[in-house]
Design a protein around this nucleic acid. Structure first.
Length: 303
RNA sequence: GGCACCAUGGCGGAGUGGUGACGCAGCGGAUUGCAAAUCCGUGUACCCGAGUUCGAUUCUCGGUGGUGCCU
């Protein structure tokens, strides 16, 4: 019997609803695998389920992190694996739901256990010598990892350099020793993938609803905290462009349009991710697929 | 009715007698601790007809459409 259910999909694909349905039917609990829904500050804008949506089902790792904190894949992995074990220990079904491909990957393929590496020095180097120089430095420190980075990706180059310098061992070496948290055979996964046009329409409509439900006020409250602008919450889709509006940089409707556009782009990137990493996961594209998905757990329960 | 100006890819917008500016949207891809982030890639477009020319999106004439002004 597969012990853990993984349900991935782009934003606005209806993952949360489906997860709750499954949880009710199969005695499960929901675990968040979405990088932004962990932040307390953004309930509306991050489309985090409401109390109503949760419908009595236990939900874990939602809105439990303060916006001033920089969350990470590593932290998520520690928390989620602990929660999964706990749910299993209580004889219930863990249902991991979200749209962050990296988190799913970490769960089923593992994430290198690298000691904390401060990006500060590498960042300083970048600011002083530019991205081309950073890339050259990365090549000398860790040619293998650098070869995997296309173009000048400061984020990933920074990580390669800082890990090599701070831990005295190249990132690629750390990464070569990774083990899955949940071994193959103990999980079953599906991707929710509605037709693109429909998804885009839903995204557009949903943002309007977010605005109606106080999304702007929520962003105002966040902005009022005066947090660093490079914090994940501050760069959340929606938050980013609404903050620009609040600062008088653009009209409200422009900020809203940009938020919708960013969400569409984001959904596209998510679909690219799942096409690659979750190529062999069954796709749920319509009602019939959903019914089949739910039905499959009914059978295993009866047995 | 007359005169002037304009007509470029889904949109905006340069420009040239012979290698398709550019921006946005869209599309494809990468992704091992910021991942809703970050990065890479991607377009046989020049209103229609005739003419000039070795060659016309670019020049000439006509047509059609649009914009402005005038009577």
């Amino acid at each position: 019997m597969k012990a853990v259910v993984l349900l991935a999909g782009p934003t606005a694909s209806g993952k949360s609803d489906l997860a709750v349905q499954l949880a009710k039917q199969a005695g499960g609990e929901v675990i968040n695998a979405d990088a932004l829904q962990v932040y307390r500050d953004l309930r509306v804008i991050s489309a985090r389920p409401t109390q109503d949506d949760m419908d009595g089902i236990a939900h874990h790792l939602f809105g439990h992190i303060d916006g001033g904190h920089r969350y990470s894949a590593g932290q998520w992995l520690k928390e989620s694996s602990a929660v999964i074990l706990d749910i299993l220990a209580r004889g219930k079904l863990p249902i991991v739901v979200g749209g962050t491909g990296l988190y799913f990957k970490a769960l089923i393929e593992g994430l290198a256990e690298v000691p904390p590496a401060d990006t500060g020095p590498a960042n300083l180097y970048l600011n002083r010598h530019g991205i081309a120089a950073l890339r050259e430095l990365a090549v000398t420190l860790d040619p293998i990892a650098t070869a995997r980075v296309l173009g000048d990706d400061p984020q990933r180059l920074l990580r390669i350099v800082s890990v090599a310098q701070e831990t005295a061992k190249p990132l690629s070496v750390w990464q070569s020793a990774t083990n899955p948290i949940i071994p193959r055979g103990y999980w079953t996964a599906s991707v929710l993938l509605p037709p693109r046009q429909l998804l885009y329409e839903r995204i557009n409509q949903r943002f309007d609803v977010m605005v109606e439900q106080g999304g702007i006020l929520e962003v105002e409250a966040l902005a009022a905290r005066g947090l660093a602008s490079d914090l994940p919450v501050m760069r959340a889709i929606g938050a980013k462009t609404i903050i620009a509006h609040l600062k008088g940089e653009c009209a409200l409707d422009v900020g809203i349009e940009l938020a919708k556009r960013d969400t569409r782009r984001f959904a596209k990137r998510q679909m690219t991710w799942f096409r690659g990493q979750a190529a062999d996961w069954p796709v749920i594209a319509n009602k019939a697929d959903k019914a089949r998905f739910l039905g499959q757990f009914q059978e295993s329960q009866q047995r």
